[in-house]
C-alpha cells in the first residue's frame, strides 16, 4: 500500500502528516509506504497511491485521482488520523 501526504511546499506540514500517518498505521498494524510531497508534484507522486492525506484547503488543487483523498483537520491528533485511515484502507 502506498500513501502520500501533501502540502503546498512539500517540506513542512506534509512531513508532520507523514510522521503521524506512519504512527497511525503502526497502531492499525497496516504495512504501507508513506511519502511526503508538494501539491504540484502530486500527479506523479500519487499516481499509484491508494490514499492521499491532506487538508481541506488543498483538495481542490489535487486534480483527478483514483486515490482516496482523506482530509485531516488536526495534524497532531493521532486518534483522528488513525480513525480516518482505518476507514480509508479498511
Amino acid at each position: 500500500m502506498k500513501i502520500v501526504a501533501i502540502c503546498g511546499a512539500g517540506i513542512g506540514t506534509s512531513e508532520i502528516l507523514r510522521v503521524n500517518a506512519t504512527r497511525a498505521l503502526e497502531r492499525l498494524d497496516i504495512e504501507a509506504e508513506v511519502t511526503a510531497t508538494d501539491v504540484a508534484s502530486v500527479g506523479v507522486a500519487a499516481a499509484d497511491a491508494q490514499v492521499i492525506l491532506t487538508s481541506q484547503e488543498l483538495v481542490g488543487a489535487i486534480g483527478p485521482t483514483n486515490a482516496d483523498v482523506v482530509v485531516i483537520d488536526n495534524y497532531f491528533d493521532l486518534e483522528e488520523i488513525t480513525a480516518k485511515l482505518e476507514i480509508a484502507v479498511g
Partner: peptide, 8 residues
Amino acid sequence: YGPYIVIA
C-alpha cells in the same frame, strides 16, 4: 493554497 498551514 489557502490557510492549510493552520495544522492544529
